[in-house]
Design a protein around this nucleic acid. Structure first.
Lengths: 219, 219
DNA sequence: CCAGTGCGGAGCGACTTGCTCCGCACGATG
DNA sequence: CATCGTGCGGAGCAAGTCGCTCCGCACTGG
């Protein structure tokens, strides 16, 4: 039972569609929360709803996939950060990467589904690794001592859901979107500066333009 | 044409209802964004939809009222902060107060309506005062120099929309809600520490419990 | 040309939306 | 106690949105 050449030829398109679907779903779920509609996701991905339903059993299944993927990304990112020679540097990189992953918080949708057991196990392991990393960052003197691992997790969640970035993304203006992401990078840097025990790096990127605040609700 | 005694007697109830309505509207709009339904707002306020419609011409009018009130609170808070003898202390208080006001970002709903002109003028004046305050905080040496006024405005917006606090509020557990607010106060303090030019105060409130992360999406 | 595959999106029933309207509870008046 | 004015809750309506199905079509390799 081999796979026909026709099937092989289509695989590329299928994979492209699937990726677009997941990226769009991540964005729309982050923006609209539980209210996110499958129509909106399909449209944002540039595919028909039929394509969405051919791959996922419905909204809940799509969301569950997203949860699993987010979990994998978190596990990998924690492991990478733990491998950094300087734990405080590794931790900073982890925060930046996690915030910019763009998942937002998916917790409100938790009711839609429950994590598969093996994913939950993976998450537990990653969380233990994360706490160990935080401990080492304390010992290295880089991380201020009164900050806990939970503080940092909450900080990541807090920074991940960015009205600024999400709303400006809707405007479909590439330059403005880049500015918004840069502005958020500065906010992340400010927060990281607040986590640091002592001297802090300069803020990255040019100072944000005021129009980032106003562009969103102008006609 | 005087007001009858009966009318006077009812005024108290009317005022109570109106306040509950506004507080509920603020919460629900912050949580659900544009999708917030008037039914949900009325229910959260503990009143019927009829009562809502007797006072406001519809969702847009309610929202506009919220915008105007938020503007007033911002103006007052900026003025108060500007009166503080130490501009950096005043600025810190302003950030905390604005974040905890609980408006979240209302920008996504901006399309529903437009600000009345006098409110816009008030906002402009407040923004000028705010920039002056930031300048003075720079000069006083309290605020790190590479942070701009826009950075701080974006930071307030970023911290104001808190998935943690909003989702835990849904659970209707007073103790847990207090813990969530305390946890966010620590995040604010961390961010303020990142804004500071040099030495920082200890973080307030006890360290957050891990269950703040998990309680939300457990059955 | 054909056959196979994956695609878009019109359309379905179910549900939610913003909003209206009416019968009723309440407290003051006489 | 009966009356009356006032503001209340929420059933119910039309319009719209939802998740989802299904079918005709475009594209590709032979």
């Amino acid at each position: 039972m081999g796979i026909s050449r026709q099937q092989q030829a289509r695989q590329a398109e299928v994979a492209r569609n699937d990726e677009a679907l997941l990226r769009a779903a991540r964005r729309v779920f982050a923006r609209d929360g539980v209210h996110a509609s499958v129509n909106a996701i399909a449209e944002a991905a540039g595919v028909g709803v039929g394509t969405l339903y051919r791959r996922y059993n419905g909204k809940a299944a799509l969301y569950e996939r997203l949860l699993v993927l987010a979990n994998q990304q978190w596990s990998v990112a924690v492991r990478t950060a733990a491998d950094h020679p300087d734990p405080w540097q590794g931790l900073q990189g982890l925060v930046v990467e996690s915030v910019e992953y763009g998942q937002g918080t998916l917790a409100p949708l938790g009711k839609l589904t429950s994590l598969p057991p093996q994913t939950a196990a993976l998450a537990d392991a990653a969380d233990r690794d994360f706490e160990a990393l935080v401990d080492r960052a304390h010992e290295s003197g880089g991380l201020r001592r009164d900050v806990t691992a939970t503080d940092i997790l909450l900080l990541i969640e807090q920074l991940g859901l960015s009205p600024l970035v999400e709303q400006i993304q809707e405007l479909d203006d590439a330059e403005l979107t880049a500015e918004a992401r840069a502005a958020r990078r500065r906010l992340i840097a400010i927060a990281l500066g607040g986590l640091a025990a002592a001297p802090r790096a300069d803020l990255p990127d040019p100072a944000p333009a005021l129009r980032l605040l106003t562009a969103r609700w102008q006609t």
